[in-house]
Nucleic acid binder design. Sequence first.
RNA 1: GGCUGGGUGGCAGAGUGGCUAUGCAGCGGAUUGCAAAUCCGUGGACCUCGGUUCGACUCCGGGCCCAGCCUCCA
Length: 459
Amino acid sequence: MLKLYNNLSRQKEEFTPIEPGKVGMYVCGMTVYDYCHVGHARVLVVFDMITRYLRHSGYAVNYVRNITDIDDKIIKRANENGEPMQALTDRFIAAMHEDSAALGVLPPDQEPRATTSMDLILNMIQTLIDKGYAYAANNGDVYYDVSKFEGYGKLSGKKLEDLRAGERVAVDESKDDPLDFVLWKAAKAGEPYWESPWGHGRPGWHIECSAMSTHCLGHSFDIHGGGLDLQFPHHENEIAQSEGATGCKFVNYWIHNGFVQINEEKMSKSLGNFFTLREVLKSYAPEVMRYFILASHYRSPLNYSDQNLDSAKSALERFYTALRDVNAAATDGAGDYETRFRTAMDDDFNTAEAMAILFELANALNKAKADNNAEQAAQLAGQLRYLGGVLGLLQDDADSFLKGGAGDDGDAEIDALVAQRNQAKKDKQWAEADRIRDELQARGIVLEDGAGGTRWRRA
RNA sequence: GGCUGGGUGGCAGAGUGGCUAUGCAGCGGAUUGCAAAUCCGUGGACCUCGGUUCGACUCCGGGCCCAGCCUCCA
């Protein structure tokens, strides 16, 4: 029985889909004007893990993750670069897809874009105006009238009066209320625009998600996710828009992942303390990043540091060392370990605890190998690979993972040196054997003499 | 100021009203020509002050501290 933490109620709830056996899930994706950083990687990986686990649990998941390809920052960046907006967004969409694939993130089932959903957006704005939730201002903007929506603030636990008391929003003359938010922005000279009943303009940020999610998944759907920073105002506004327009309950379960932090501080564009994924992947295998993200609970803060990534790397090495030299048996995963794995995952996707079970499996596998129990080892390896796969981990060839890394020496040369050393060992020339081993060590190669011969890996 | 979430061993990170998390690092042993890997064993923790309880790190209340949202942000 899957339980998940619902941000709407601020407690764990049993998950019951609207349609038995099916899950509709929408996640707010990237605004494509720059490369993904580690914070973006977390959203991608976390919701990929959730999708994979839901599928493992037997649900047919319709996973929708949008792309925001029109907004102020995109316009600004395109102008700075002196390139057409679409050239910019195409480039960063491609980059984002590359980054996702590297992390083992499966493509979403649908990936709608704001610029190709303009009729949906315009329709929804019109509906909101018709129903009295929105008004066209004299400057060409269209605003959502927050006071008209009962329950505004229910997701983030905010009250209108509190928001007004803590007023920090620059007062905009054309709004009836400073808390009203924009649905349609009138185009200034030189800005890209679309035709609308209210003149040339572009959509506000929040409306695209309401329009695209309800279009792809229906007026009501099961799960809506995104980073914690989207809870307010973005998701709050989505609720106001969608429920205002459709009159239906928008989403049953809201899921938000925690931040990636650096030195106890949120990693973010505005603070400038971010690392792009591509930078990090120069030093670490993508699977190390994925493990690092999944080793802690998705709602906890995740502290980014080299030390923590090194630790993630060591953990993966332990798994792959156990898996090395074993032919994993085909399995449907069922068994005691799977039961416990599932219990952990059913508790609000507790990947940290699930990981502990995988380590137990690795331990049992190592023992079976030491006992020369090939059949049992094959079974355990199969289980480990299967359950790892549910998390999108441990699918690589063990030896290539362990030999991968930053080394620039050719494998053939290393093999030759290993052979030389083995000859020296056979001749009991220990000094020579150790000299070669030290030489390889200095190049970041670690040797392991085992029953089946000498193996090496990159440290 | 309002509203969230959190404070666990050297580090990372789960969890539980009384019983081993787990990984990395440390220590002892096995194994090894010596190592590495592996196995076995082992030390070490629950911010603080009260309350509930036979018993609380775990539940309740106060305090202190941290992060986040209230402005674009995954």
